[in-house]
Design a protein around this nucleic acid. Sequence first.
DNA 1: TTGTACGCGTTATCAG
DNA 2: CTGATAACGCGTACAA
Lengths: 340, 340
Amino acid sequence: MGNHITIKDIAKALGISTSTVSRALSDAWDVKKETREQVLAMARKLNYHPNLNAKNLQNKRTGTVGIIIPEFVSSFFPKVIMGIQEELYAADYHIFITQSDESRAKELANMNLLREHMVEGIIISTTNEGGNEEAYRELIASGLPVVFFNRCPKTVAAPKVLIDDCRMAEMAVEHLINTGRTDIRHLLGPVNLEVSAMRAQGFVNALGKHGMESEGKMIPAGIFVQDGEVAVARMLAEGSKLPDALFCFNDPVAIGAMRALKAAGLRVPEDIAIVGFSEGSMATVVEPPLTTVLQPMQEMGRQAARLLLEQLTGNRRQSDRTVCLEATLNIRASSVSEKE
Amino acid sequence: MGNHITIKDIAKALGISTSTVSRALSDAWDVKKETREQVLAMARKLNYHPNLNAKNLQNKRTGTVGIIIPEFVSSFFPKVIMGIQEELYAADYHIFITQSDESRAKELANMNLLREHMVEGIIISTTNEGGNEEAYRELIASGLPVVFFNRCPKTVAAPKVLIDDCRMAEMAVEHLINTGRTDIRHLLGPVNLEVSAMRAQGFVNALGKHGMESEGKMIPAGIFVQDGEVAVARMLAEGSKLPDALFCFNDPVAIGAMRALKAAGLRVPEDIAIVGFSEGSMATVVEPPLTTVLQPMQEMGRQAARLLLEQLTGNRRQSDRTVCLEATLNIRASSVSEKE
DNA sequence: TTGTACGCGTTATCAG
DNA sequence: CTGATAACGCGTACAA
């Protein structure tokens, strides 16, 4: 099949040995200018392309790092990847992108695939299904550098990059309190995600700090627009007293919530204020614009890459350092009326 | 460095030959049950993982296909990729995702990288910079199966998957005409993209069909929210008579246009109707919801994958067949007032 | 400055 | 059923 041109072909065509060709191609010092030029000319004439499989096998390194993300339909992970690329390309590494589709099994399969491709390190953001903690540990124990970002397994010792979800959640909820909201509820994220717990904790902290009860104020929701919509629709159907503010696990949930409220004839923010988390492209486009927490996505990618590079360049063995990035609470009209 | 376990290690540990190990691992028929079990046990004990570089080198095939997309921050390409995966995984291929970042140079670099990784085929959606036509032809001439989707180079003979951009654009504009709009303008996409030309052509066709002049009705815009915003702001600043409808190259441009109109105190759709193209997640979330053309993204991916598989499985040599998919005009409030 | 010989990890062929 | 041996494409001591 794929009858690719090899250095053998070049050698034969020129009547010289393959080693000379090899040297000429990687322009070594000990090759006559004349022959190098001949080789280069012939290579381009035959449209030669090196076989990386062979090269990597020989070199015992691939210059590649693997990435496993749960999905790339939202713009969060792609933006992080851009940061990763930026840093890694500069260090002459290529990246191999893989997606787990939020499935524990696929994530595991990807880990194996990457390992078998001899990647030199892996950057992971876990699925919301969870359950691969043992596999992460085994991977790390096998000597492969691993870095987590955004969704990090609590029980695995490895370098991690995240924002202080708890503190930012607390800040977001305090913003609601400070603008006069007195009955705030939280639309929860997926139960298996550490970030869900962190944001919920921030919610509880903020209420506690201001002497408010958080008991019974948490509503299961999820991660998608529909999750928020369903959760709020159910709340409305219950018919009990409505809250005056909702702090949501993320932007899609917040937008779903807004949609359900509007459909029921309620006004945002006058009747109910809405706050999201992890600002995406939709935040500034919805009506009213959404108050939410902006994560430094590119920077998160850059940091994750740097943490990996630290290990790759051997400066440091598997440090289990956690890098905590600054995030920003962007206040918009979904939580404060225009005139305020 | 990466002191990976090899079949040699297994062989040595068991006092047998590497060939036997190899056979046991790929459970060949001619290996004693007992030894196979020993090998498997030892492999798992030593945490063995095959080296795909070596495997691929030997097998002369990688079971991998490469993908080059311009970006993955919008959800369009990721959704297409999901379709590609679906089809390709079923056929036991892996995919290698690569992004050109809309840059001609990066696209070229990716083509080479993929080729050197010995992918068995490549699926491409081109950059809006263009200019790699010669490279595509060379790639194809070298015997590598290539399929284009959505953004396809007009002058390159290869299988392509797209929707009938021209006809859908025409349909979208006719919708505006049929709802009583008489002065419609078009916010253009990037000049180097075939799809830009196609959608513009559809615009012209629709006007022509209804005896309207299209001369001077095309406004340069682009591809991002900001492009639409700037284009409309400029139009408003000119102070000449305003159109009563805008047909935009894509959704972000449409949303940018809407934003600029709102900022100027104009109402959508009462004063000016807006129609986008290539429905994304923002269409149903903006206010008012956007009339736009929904592309069958997953299906587009599946078709592209199938076209590639046709060539990979050798049923067909580089056919330059074009598959045209059905799209849908989703009419929403941005183009028709509620009461109509 | 160039060629020879060998090895990277794997599979395939062919004896035994 | 199992073990040598060669080969995939490339890089690199070592010799010449």
